[in-house]
Amino acid sequence: MNALRIFAAIAAFSMILPATAADKVVMSVFPTTVAAPSSVGLAKGYFTEQGIELESKWMNRGAETIQALGAGQVDLGLAAMTPVLAARARGLPIVVIGMHSHGFPGYLVASNKNSQLTRLEDFKGKRIGVPMGSGVHTVLLMAIDKIGLKQSDFQIQNARPPDMPAAMQGGGFDAVLGWMPYSTRVVAMGYGKIVMTPDQFEQMLGITYPLVLITTEDTIRNKPDVLQRFLNAWAKSEKFVDRERTESVKLLRGTLGDKIKVLDDKTVTDVMYSYKHDRVALNDADIADVRSTIDYLFAQKQIGTKPSIDQLINNSFAKKAEAMVK
């Protein structure tokens, strides 16, 4: 009888104890279709399953994410490789721990009067609009180098992708290099023609163009278990995005709301899946892409030192997570 009373008392006491608190992770996320994996993971409860309370902070550029990481405002974020390499070359302890997706998003769209041009070299001397400082800009410069020309052989000017349709309507550029939906909107509005696709750029340069998940050396050192559980949920989310397109778009709309309300489901799907979500760990081709980008940026004196791949990329968390969700 006494044993039963003791057991009942323990059970009653345990019911009034607070539940074990989840580990909070603050992540920088772009308020675009890039938010799909985090949206899915939150809606499906994948982060909760791993004891992670995920808070998203909306940011618009990889450079902004890197600044927030350095200031301790976020634990994780997303960025293209160019700003990551620039940060690492400046001595910032940024580390790549996985991927969001891969696939170059850039379409080269010629104005109607230049629609007969089909190769990059055909645009020598012409005005090309591109978001300066972006990964797409770096790929354009690498492509120019690949064909044996120089940046000065072209009139390369800054152009924000949302401004490209209006700029092409007004005759501001002979061509623009941007991503969906803005580049394809130029075509749909009758202001230009696609002359080079993302696949053509990838084949020309042998790139995979990874969009990477980044953190800091301190976070890896101090919170390895939290990072592993985050990556476990992330890998599960990416797998869902890769396989369940219709529901992923629906869940993304639930997160972004008015931010994408002007886009129909087909456009959202086309933009979201212009990137491939079939892996989380970087593979050999991704790492080769990173090496070639480092070599190019260093040769062009855009970075002063070559970051060590071993210090730059820690694939261990992503590989364990991928093994878990197979």
Score class of each variant (00 low, 15 high):
201 F>M: 01
264 D>C: 02
275 Y>V: 05
323 A>C: 04
92 L>S: 11
288 A>V: 02
139 V>I: 15
75 D>E: 09
46 Y>C: 04
150 K>C: 02
258 D>C: 01
96 V>N: 11
104 F>W: 06
273 Y>W: 09
83 P>A: 02
181 P>Y: 11
291 R>I: 14
69 L>Y: 11
308 S>E: 13
241 V>I: 12
275 Y>P: 01
72 G>P: 07
273 Y>K: 09
244 E>L: 01
215 T>V: 09
1 M>T: 15
198 P>M: 02
52 I>Y: 07
284 D>L: 09
16 I>G: 07
269 T>I: 03
151 Q>G: 14
60 N>Q: 11
157 Q>R: 13
96 V>M: 10
21 A>C: 08
182 Y>L: 01
100 H>E: 13
255 T>I: 00
124 K>Y: 07
291 R>T: 14
265 D>A: 10
211 L>A: 08
308 S>F: 06
15 M>W: 14
242 D>F: 06
192 G>N: 08
253 R>D: 08
44 K>M: 14
93 P>I: 10
293 T>H: 07
16 I>N: 08
150 K>I: 05
207 I>A: 01
154 F>M: 00
38 S>H: 05
173 F>R: 02
28 S>V: 02
143 A>I: 13
199 D>I: 06
123 F>G: 03
119 R>I: 02
167 A>Q: 09
326 K>S: 14
169 Q>P: 01
304 G>T: 15
255 T>N: 06
225 D>L: 04
177 L>D: 05
115 S>N: 11
111 S>K: 03
158 N>Q: 09
264 D>P: 05
138 T>L: 15
151 Q>V: 14
3 A>P: 00
248 S>L: 11
121 E>Y: 00
313 I>H: 08
254 G>T: 13
40 V>K: 12
296 Y>T: 11
149 L>A: 07
75 D>H: 09
189 M>I: 01
237 S>G: 09
110 A>P: 05
39 S>A: 15
315 N>M: 12
176 V>P: 08
273 Y>V: 07
109 V>H: 05
311 Q>L: 14
294 I>L: 02
135 G>N: 12
262 V>N: 11
23 D>Q: 13
292 S>I: 03
1 M>C: 11
140 L>Y: 10
144 I>Q: 01
176 V>A: 08
311 Q>C: 05
88 R>F: 08
82 T>R: 13
